[in-house]
């Protein structure tokens, strides 16, 4: 049996909100095999985004273990974890989080800076991904691209470093149902082509049926 791309064991994380509220995330076991695509569903405030940030090593859990491609994320020191994230994990956000003032190509190249790929291959890799995702103006900055094109750039950037795992945080939240389905299909298809596992969070019931496996987070 191949080693899982993502393995979560006994994860506990308490989010304390100074203004009241807050929540506790508890996940006893979650595993993704290489190339597997999983939807994490749940209502707002159930901790879906927090789960992805814990997996990416951007937050530290109270307890439990998260392994990505066999390496425990939180056993690494900060710089090591940053480097590992750059090589093994791609992230897509609801608001895309593209870099202002950088062209579409430069956004993808920025991700490649922190990858394992040799420098001489960066430009070719970026152009190849952007072309495959239908980016017509790779030299345009995000503010000159349509929302759909921006999302494609975000997908290209997440997959640029050939990660084993892509984390997509509510990528359809700001889209209408038709575009939401298309966007999810685009992400899924691109991950499939690149051989990356996908952990996608969404509270949108319309995309549930597009995933073979759905994990429910309870608030």
């Amino acid at each position: 049996m191949p080693e899982p791309t993502l393995a979560i064991q006994n994860l506990r994380f308490t989010h304390a909100d100074p203004g009241g509220g807050g929540f506790t995330l508890a996940l006893d076991d979650l595993q993704l095999t290489p190339g597997e695509q999983v939807l994490v569903a749940g209502t707002s405030g159930s901790g879906k985004s927090t789960l992805l940030q814990l997996v990416a090593g951007l937050l530290d859990p109270d307890s439990g273990e998260i392994k990505v491609d066999g390496r425990a994320m939180h056993a690494m020191n900060g710089a090591e974890r940053d480097r590992y994230r750059g090589r093994r994990i791609g992230m897509i956000f609801q608001t895309f989080n593209l870099l202002d003032g950088f062209s579409a190509r430069e956004n993808v190249l920025a991700a490649l800076m922190f990858s394992d790929l040799p420098n001489r291959e960066h430009r070719e890799r970026a152009d190849q991904l952007l072309q495959r995702l239908g980016i017509e103006r790779p030299d345009a900055t995000p503010d000159r691209l349509s929302v759909g094109q921006q999302q494609r750039v975000a997908v290209a950037r997440a997959l640029a470093s050939r990660p084993g795992l892509v984390l997509a945080d509510e990528p359809t939240a700001s889209l209408d149902p038709a575009n939401a389905t298309n966007a999810v299909e685009l992400i899924k298809e691109t991950c499939r082509q690149e051989g990356a596992a996908l952990l996608l969070t969404s509270h949108d019931p319309s995309i549930r049926d597009t995933f073979e496996r759905v994990e429910e987070l309870q608030a």
């Binding site: 900060g78 710089a79 750059g86 593209l98 870099l99 991700a111 990858s115």
Partner: peptide, 15 residues
């Protein structure tokens, strides 16, 4: 702040 956060997500270390 957002640009720095994005760079960190992409793999840029604090240093």
């Amino acid at each position: 702040r957002r640009q720095i956060a994005i760079l960190r997500v992409l793999g840029c270390s604090q240093g």
